[in-house]
C-alpha cells in the first residue's frame, strides 16, 4: 500500500470519527459546549465521561457523520474557539484531577477571515504550552487525519498513538506538492516524501503505539479502553513531577542537526 493509499483511507467517508470512539469506549459521556469567550465550535467535541470506573475528560476533533453534519462541523477544521473550548476543558480536568484523552482527526485548523481575526495562531500556541505542563495525564490518539498545527494543538501529550491507517503531517501532500512542484496532482509523490504514515512515524519515534486496523471496530475500542486504563495507571503511579519531566523530554528530543565544523 502506497503512502497516498493510506492518505485516502485516513480521509475516507464512513471511517469512524471521534464521536464513534467516544461512544464505543466510554460510558456516561456528558458533552460540554462553548469557549466562554466567543462561540461553540462544533468541530471540537468536549466533555466528561467514564473510562471503566474513572472519570476522564474527553476531547475530539469531529468531522461529522453525514453530509449535513460534516458541513456544520466544518469537516473537522476547528476555529480558534474550538481550541479554546478544548483548553477550557483541559484546565477543568487539571482542577478536578481527571486525565485527558484526545482524539485527533482534522485536515488542519480552519483558515479563513474570522479564524485569523480571532487569533488562530494564538489559540494553537496557547494550547501547546499549556498542555506541556498540564498537571494530569494526557493521551492523544490520531484516528484519521493529523493535519499540522491544528492536530498538534490536541497532541502535546504524555503518549501519542495512531490508528494504523491514519496520517500525521506538517502539511497536506497536496499543499506540499503545489508549493514544491507547483502541481497538486503530484500529491502521491509528496505523501511518500513526507513520511506521514503510522509505520514511518513509529520508526521516527513520534508515536508510541500503532493500533492495528485488522481488528473489527469494536475490538479497536476494547483495545484502546484497556490501553488507556493501563497507561493512565502507570503514569499516575510515577507521580506528577516525573510525568511532566517525561512529557518535556518526549518533545525535547526531536530534531536532527550537526554541530561539527565543516
Amino acid at each position: 500500500m502506497s503512502a497516498y493509499d493510506v492518505v485516502l483511507k485516513a480521509r475516507a467517508n464512513g471511517r469512524a470519527t471521534a464521536q464513534d470512539y467516544i461512544n464505543g469506549i466510554f460510558t456516561d459521556f456528558v458533552e460540554l459546549h462553548g469557549d466562554r469567550r466567543f462561540a461553540d465550535d462544533s468541530a471540537v467535541i468536549a466533555g466528561i465521561a467514564r473510562l471503566g470506573d474513572k472519570s476522564v475528560t474527553v476531547i475530539g476533533l469531529e468531522k461529522g457523520s453525514d453530509v449535513k453534519d460534516r458541513a456544520a462541523r466544518n469537516f473537522g477544521s476547528a476555529q480558534p474557539e474550538g481550541y479554546r473550548k478544548a483548553l477550557r476543558q483541559m484546565k477543568q480536568a487539571e482542577k478536578f484531577g481527571r486525565p485527558v484523552i484526545c482524539f485527533v482527526d482534522t485536515s488542519g485548523a480552519y483558515c479563513g477571515i474570522g479564524a485569523e481575526e480571532r487569533g488562530q495562531g494564538q489559540a494553537i500556541a496557547e494550547n501547546l504550552w499549556t498542555m506541556m505542563t498540564l498537571g494530569v495525564p494526557v493521551i492523544s490518539v490520531i484516528i484519521g487525519e493529523g493535519g499540522s498545527g491544528g492536530a498538534l494543538a490536541l497532541a502535546v501529550a504524555d503518549e501519542v498513538w495512531m490508528l494504523e491507517n491514519s496520517i500525521y503531517s506538517v502539511i497536506s501532500p497536496e499543499g506540499c506538492a503545489s508549493i514544491l512542484w507547483k502541481d497538486s496532482t503530484k500529491a502521491p509523490d509528496a505523501a511518500e516524501c513526507l513520511k506521514l504514515t503510522s509505520r514511518e512515524l513509529y520508526r521516527l519515534g513520534v508515536v508510541e503505539k500503532v493500533i492495528t486496523e485488522k481488528l473489527g471496530q469494536q475490538q479497536i475500542y476494547d483495545t484502546l479502553s484497556r490501553l488507556f486504563s493501563e497507561t493512565i495507571t502507570r503514569i499516575d503511579s510515577e507521580g506528577k513531577e516525573k510525568m511532566l519531566e517525561a512529557r518535556y523530554e518526549r518533545f525535547r528530543k526531536f530534531g536532527s542537526y550537526t554541530e561539527t565544523v565543516v
Binding site: A125, L128, W129, T130, M132, T133, S148, G149, L152, V156, Y168, S169, V170, I171, C176, I179, L180, C193, L194, K195, L196, L201, L204, V206, R247, Y248, F251, R252, F254, G255, S256
Partner: peptide
Amino acid sequence: ARMQEGIISLMQMAKVSGAVK
C-alpha cells in the same frame, strides 16, 4: 514550519513551547 523536515519540523513547535513555558 519547514516541510522538507516533515513531522520533525512540526514537533519543534511543541519543543520550543515547552522551553518557553
